[in-house]
Design a protein around this nucleic acid. Structure first.
Lengths: 204, 204
DNA sequence: CTCCTGATGACACGACGTGTCATCGACTCC
DNA sequence: GGAGTCGATGACACGTCGTGTCATCAGGAG
């Protein structure tokens, strides 16, 4: 611990601060106003007061500007690493999803609806969304293995968790008068167990 | 039923036949030889003896040339529509997956491995692959609803089915001395039921 | 004072994907 | 058998995406 370190952040004045944030906000606004594919990168950078080249320094491509700021993977990593050892994985995952639902969805329904409408309207965004889903699986799976879950079980549970997150989100968004998303998550786990229950004779 | 209809297909000589097939094969060969992103559309069309514009008449984009010929969605549609009514959906889905495993995977392991290596090496292809997975869910789900499965259950079961398909495929490809993929599918269903079984006290 | 660092600007460029019109063999109709 | 239609392909222009490269210039370190 050296001593002086932080005097004051010494605001840089050469460029307006938070270039990435300005780009992300400008992008989202324009996507919402005129659609994703109808928005060009030069339009975004013009609104943010930057250049096209700078946009691609902050985002790998135009889609990433839309998905920037997704905190769920980091949350998942942390939750898996810091949960008490020996906790039943399914319980851990369900509680983790309920926590995510409370912190990221239950109080932002309208914003989430706008985002989903944009994704649904744009194949390019649906595709990236599907990839983000796979990325989350790729975070959860090794986290479970590190907790001692067998590889196959870890793969299935990681996929199951992200499955429930997405199905619950759809349910919650489509319900005109929905309960909390956390409860939708739990309801999904209940139905999941129910549909998988072996039927005696293989008929309904 | 008019009478003369099919004399002989009257082979068209103006252009070589099966333009789409030639494009798809040329694309796959070049992707395998030099990678997806290192292959340009003009290279593909040169090998197929066509022009760039024609490529985009047969495929929406470069990635579609890689995934062209995927028959699983149509198989799923047909299987769901033609299966005996009243069959337990989980049984139907598991049997359907086993059938797909036998018909499309068990005798093509090396080809499937090559394809997966290409997908893994290329983010653009991973993304499209994730989208194809979502597309298959979107085929199975309404098929289940048409069979009378409740909407939430149909969503969960459709997702579950595609989940098992992918997890089983990974297991089967990674196992140095694998059983038939059909059996891997069944093993996944077994583990799925096992991991979801409620534990008495929430600990391992 | 000088050098270094790091974010941005400026510019060129290849590749992707689309719109549009022309071409021309095959088929149909009369 | 001649005229018109149809459908797949070619030819060309064009806008956008995303990258490589070098220049610029404020602040910090020695």
């Amino acid at each position: 611990m050296t001593r002086r370190v932080v005097a004051y952040p010494r605001v840089v004045v050469r460029w307006s601060p938070d270039a990435r944030g300005r780009l992300g906000r400008a992008a989202f606004e324009l996507f919402a106003e005129q659609g994703f594919s109808a928005t060009t990168v030069p339009e975004i950078t013009a609104r943010a007061g930057l250049t096209t080249r700078t946009f691609f320094r902050h985002f790998a491509d135009k889609r990433e500007a839309f998905f920037a700021g997704d905190e769920i993977p980091d949350l998942a990593r942390h939750a898996l690493a810091s949960a008490p050892a020996g906790l039943d994985p399914v319980t851990l995952l369900e509680q983790g999803l309920r926590q995510v639902a409370r912190d990221h969805f239950d109080d932002r329904r309208e914003e989430v609806r706008v985002r989903r409408a944009l994704v649904d309207a744009e194949p390019a965004l649906r595709e990236r969304d599907a990839q983000k889903r796979a990325d989350l699986v790729a975070v959860i799976r090794p986290g479970l293995e590190a907790r001692g879950v067998a590889p196959l079980d870890a793969a299935l549970l990681a996929e199951l968790t992200v499955l429930v997150l997405h199905v619950a989100l759809d349910q919650w968004l489509d319900d005109p008068d929905p309960p909390s998303m956390a409860d939708v998550v739990s309801a999904c786990f209940v139905r999941l167990r129910a549909v998988l229950e072996p039927r005696p004779d293989g008929v309904l």
